[in-house]
Simulated scan of single mutants.
Amino acid sequence: MTFSIVARCNRTGMFGVAVSSSSPAVAARCAHARAGVGAVSSQNVTDPMLGTEALDLMASGMGAAGAIEELRSSRPYMEYRQVLAVDVAGGTAIHSGPRALGIWAEARDTDVACGGNLLADAGVPQAMVDAFLASSGHLADRLLIALRAALAAGGEAGPVRSAGLKIVDAVSWPVADLRVDWTEGCPIAELSGLWALYAPQLDAYVTRALNPSDAPSYGVPGDL
């Protein structure tokens, strides 16, 4: 009941995850990323611990393929899980257990891995990879392009209701962590609108955290 993309920007070193689902608050469970380490999506009968563990393994020096193999061999119930990972070198790996739900599929290339379950069409992940690789610009924009390509290729078997976008860069916290936890409309369109609102302010929020004396004004009523 989910499709997602994990990716690395080979120009900036940013990592990101974008995900959408018919379930509520999908990004709260599935999206994991750590600056200088990698990005992971843990989905399908989701175990969020797999995302944290995969990032810990990659932080210890293991590549995405090694981290996924370690999870596959050591964690219980992996036959139910789908886990996507990208590492600091742009290596990618995916585990899709045989008990993943409905039509499930995966696709990957250097710097990008996509996967989904309960899909309307098995070609959805490859459409996402192709769209990402053909795109340019900020990593967040490219991830959203991939989500829109998933919808165009059929998306989930039913309507999606939540979506999320997480981006990490040079600081220890996500520089963008945007979510549409439930909507009767299109969560990917609403998420794109949130990113359009947030993107011009992203650098200012980082500056305010690191050195408020250099930060721009807040642009809110009462700010002098």
Rank of each mutant, 00 (worst) to 15 (best):
H95C: 06
H95E: 08
S96K: 00
S96C: 10
P98A: 00
R99E: 01
A100W: 00
L101W: 03
G102F: 00
W104Y: 14
A105I: 07
A105C: 11
D109S: 14
D109R: 14
D109W: 01
D111M: 06
A113S: 04
C114N: 07
G116N: 03
G116L: 03
G116H: 09
L118Q: 06
A120M: 02
A120D: 05
D121Q: 14
V124T: 09
M128S: 10
A131E: 11
F132K: 10
L133Q: 15
S135Y: 09
S136C: 01
G137K: 01
H138N: 09
L139M: 07
A140N: 06
L143P: 05
A149C: 12
L151Y: 11
L151S: 15
A152L: 14
A152K: 15
A152D: 15
G155A: 05
A157V: 09
A157C: 11
A157R: 14
G158C: 01
G158A: 08
V160S: 14
R161A: 04
S162H: 02
S162I: 02
G164W: 12
I167C: 08
V168P: 12
S172R: 10
W173L: 13
P174E: 09
V175L: 11
A176W: 09
R179G: 05
V180H: 12
D181P: 12
D181R: 12
W182E: 05
E184Q: 02
G185Q: 04
C186G: 05
C186Y: 01
I188D: 14
I188R: 15
I188L: 13
I188F: 13
E190G: 01
L191E: 11
S192C: 11
S192Y: 02
S192V: 07
G193L: 05
G193H: 03
L197E: 15
L197A: 14
Y198M: 06
Y198N: 05
Y198F: 12
Y198C: 07
